[in-house]
């Protein structure tokens, strides 16, 4: 259901500068268009290719440094594709209060991955997130943009299976 970057990784298009230029042109007239453009590119390609930086800078009459600055300032934007599924685990206090830290250690061990890393088979990328607003039903996660509450290793595995179906 969510329309932006959380959607499933498998449906991404390969990077294509022409296609990117078209997306940029669609949004270039908007006030403060940088973030909408970066979101749209990431939604389409799964990441924002470095080649997009001069394209955006030209379209918005900004410097490449300004676009690069934006791209790297915000945690959401990726410089390379993620795995087929993205798991965002909430590391904030309300989830800590219900054992999130210990759970996260287990998750990273089970999937043999580090924060921001992708499993060797390219299936799952695990990212930290600070608060999903699911603070009364933690530990919480977003699995490909779909919320999961009272998370444990089993419910995470179920959610991943469900997303793959």
């Amino acid at each position: 259901m969510p329309s932006h970057e959380h959607a499933r990784g498998a449906s991404r298009e390969p990077w294509d500068a022409g296609r990117a230029a078209g997306i940029i042109a669609e949004h270039a007239h908007r006030e403060g268009a940088t973030l909408p453009i970066l979101h749209a590119l990431q939604e389409t390609f799964g990441y924002v290719d470095g080649e997009a930086v001069p394209l955006i800078a030209d379209a918005l009459n900004l410097s490449r440094a300004e676009i690069h600055g934006c791209l790297t300032f915000y945690h959401d934007f990726r410089a390379e594709p993620a795995g087929r599924h993205t798991v965002k685990l909430c590391r904030a206090e309300a989830c800590q209060a219900v054992g999130a830290d210990a759970l996260h250690e287990d998750v990273l061990r089970r999937y043999d991955v580090a924060w921001h890393g992708t499993t060797r088979d390219g299936r799952v990328t695990v990212e930290p997130v600070f608060c999903l607003g699911l603070c009364a039903c933690g530990p919480a996660a977003l699995v490909d943009g779909e919320p999961v509450g009272r998370l444990d290793l089993d419910t995470l595995a179920d959610a991943l299976t469900e997303r793959a179906a």
Partner: peptide, 20 residues
Amino acid sequence: AGAYICGEETSLLESLEGKR
């Protein structure tokens, strides 16, 4: 785009303007 600081109002305005 995942920056907590953008909850600060001037930072939020910068972000809306398309900046860091």
